[in-house]
Lab assay of single mutants.
Amino acid sequence: EFTQISGYVNAFGSQRGSVLTVKVENDEGWTLVEEDFDRADYGSDPEFVAEVSSYLKRNGGIKDLTKVL
């Protein structure tokens, strides 16, 4: 089950073990991109978060400006 990723309007994530599946949706709710990120592939949590965040930004993730990150 996908849940909204904090700080984004149209990005959602689903966690299974160490694998986080993220997706970005358009205004109609269609999935634009979907990608798996395995936490085990990264040396640290900040590196993992930075990679996921960068992916979302590159692929149309819209920041939720009503929330302070």
Results as ranks from 00 to 15, higher is better:
T31R: 05
V49C: 15
Y55H: 03
G13F: 14
F48P: 00
V24I: 14
V68S: 12
R39I: 04
A50N: 09
E51V: 15
G13L: 09
E1R: 13
V19I: 12
P46E: 15
E47G: 02
V49R: 13
G61V: 13
F2S: 04
E51Q: 09
V9T: 11
D38R: 03
S44C: 06
K57N: 14
P46I: 14
S53L: 14
G43L: 09
D45E: 10
E25D: 05
D36N: 12
Q15R: 15
V68Q: 10
F12D: 00
Q15N: 08
S6R: 12
T21F: 05
S54W: 10
T66V: 09
V9H: 08
Q15T: 11
D36C: 13
L69S: 14
L65D: 11
L65W: 12
F48R: 00
L69I: 14
L65M: 11
S53W: 11
G43K: 11
F12Y: 11
G29K: 04
L20P: 00
L32W: 08
D41C: 13
S14I: 14
T66R: 09
S44L: 04
G17A: 03
K63C: 15
S53V: 14
W30T: 13
A40F: 07
R39P: 02
P46L: 15
L69P: 14
D27Q: 11
T31E: 04
V19G: 00
Y42F: 11
F48I: 01
S6A: 12
V24W: 03
G7F: 05
K67P: 14
I62N: 04
T66A: 08
D36M: 12
V19T: 05
A11N: 01
F12T: 03
T31N: 04
E35S: 10
P46Y: 15
Q15L: 14
A40H: 08
E28R: 10
V68M: 11
G17K: 03
T31A: 08
T21S: 07
D41G: 06
A11H: 00
L69W: 07
D38V: 02
S6D: 11
S44V: 02
A40D: 09
T31K: 06
K63M: 14
A40L: 11
D41W: 08
E28L: 12
V24Y: 02
N26G: 07
K67A: 12
G17F: 06
R39G: 01
Y42T: 00
I5D: 03
G7P: 07
L69Y: 09
S54D: 13
V9S: 08
Q4T: 08
Y8S: 05
E51T: 11
D27A: 12
I5W: 06
V52A: 01
A11R: 00
